[in-house]
Design a binder for these strands. Structure first.
Lengths: 224, 224
DNA sequence: TATCCTATTTAGGAAAACCTAAATAATTAT
DNA sequence: ATAATTATTTAGGTTTTCCTAAATAGGATA
């Protein structure tokens, strides 16, 4: 029962959670890129996490890593902190959605369970953060999300933006200018078969924008 | 220009600030007690802080340590964070005054200047925290505080509670029960010359309480 | 002043989380 | 299938902040 989840360990678990959502194990390199450290550091940490009791990850040399049940629980706890904090920074302190990520990134490791409960209650137990990402409940169950990348929507179909990739501020500011926000209705007017650039109507009868894969791959929608 | 103020360094600076408020340098032992580490660890850290450029402390072997101007500035910045956070946890999240210390203790190291400004503005640039401690302004100037320990007040005199020592929760809960809170009027009815126990009227025409030095030494008042 | 006790410092180490360089394994191309 | 390339691991360091045990300095006492 080591039970010491350092900030760094929490970051690793969160990153592994994200990279394994598609079901496949996360590679050393992908983790290194995500966490901004050298691959050698990943190997070391991952070996430690696999050796800890209870083990937080399952690891096979050269074959990547995935979370155990205990690791997943710990990851969801951090993700809950992060997304609640983002929601609350926007709702209570007037942050814009492109400013909250880095602040939440630091706060998530230090807030108490008491703090978590207080902001969750103050916000009315929200299930989505400002980027539309689902927030795990107090029971750590992740709300279901059926959204697919906008790029996977066929020409002629309509959809609603559900969530967007929140990693970088520049990207979020562009979405804001485009009015491509969670909740917005979109209609795919045309898809270029060559470079997969999309012509999309944004809003009920809003403007038409031409969007490349850098955007359509990171905006997730529900069709219908 | 090292300019890396780790959490630990910030804690040291804050502790040194507190222990040198009376003008005398802080001893290795006093710091060790305050920070909950061994005296040997203090020596090591203090040597490092004195050697850093710019030096954060002034240090003479066996004669204690005090802050340089740069060290004081850094300490005040952390104290501002801490006290703003305490004020804001009470005002916005419904914490009681005995719950805020440990939460603020962790948050103070990770909030951004932006966060600091936002809560200060939301609170209307407060100058006192929930324990009555002065909050350094945005310019890092500490509001003046003329308060003296209640134990120094003569029999027959009246005073107003200005601030209380906020270190331990048990103590704060007792003060709450006694209604001995910042802003409360008190009148010293009688002082036992032997053990210095005081008979004090708490509130305009409130109850009389008998208080030992464990309390009267940690409650600060302004007479008149 | 010589001794004793306490405060402080020195010396040597440990744990965490990173790094670089070199070695090895896996995958891809020829 | 072999060679070339890429991914991953191992080995050996570094930094930060703490520790314990042993040495020394300062101040108090007799």
């Amino acid at each position: 029962m080591s039970e010491v989840l350092t900030d760094s360990i929490q970051d690793y678990l969160k990153a592994i959670f994200d990279l394994t959502e598609n079901g496949t194990p996360a590679s050393t390199n992908a983790l290194a890129r995500r966490l901004g450290v050298e691959p050698a550091s990943i190997t070391g940490m991952v070996q430690k996490l696999a050796a800890s009791r209870p083990a937080l990850v399952e690891y096979r040399k050269h074959h990547g890593v995935k979370l155990t049940a205990a690791g997943k629980r710990a990851a969801l706890e951090v993700i809950r902190h992060h997304r609640l904090l983002e929601t609350w920074l926007v709702a209570s302190l007037g942050y814009s959605w492109d400013q909250v990520h880095s602040e939440a990134e630091r706060l998530e490791h230090v807030i108490s369970e008491d703090f978590e409960e207080r902001i969750a209650a103050a916000l009315g137990e929200p299930t989505r953060d400002p980027h539309g990402e689902p927030i795990p409940g107090p029971d750590l169950v992740m709300p279901s999300d059926q959204s697919i990348p906008l790029e996977a929507v066929q020409a002629g179909k309509k959809a609603t933006v559900r969530r967007v990739d929140a990693q970088d501020r520049e990207f979020l500011r562009r979405l804001e200018l485009l009015r491509l926000l969670p909740g917005t209705r979109v209609a795919v007017v045309e898809v270029s078969p060559v470079d997969h650039v999309m012509k999309v109507r944004i809003g009920a009868r809003g403007t038409i924008a031409v969007l490349g894969p850098a955007i359509t791959g990171r905006v997730f929608v529900e069709t219908g």
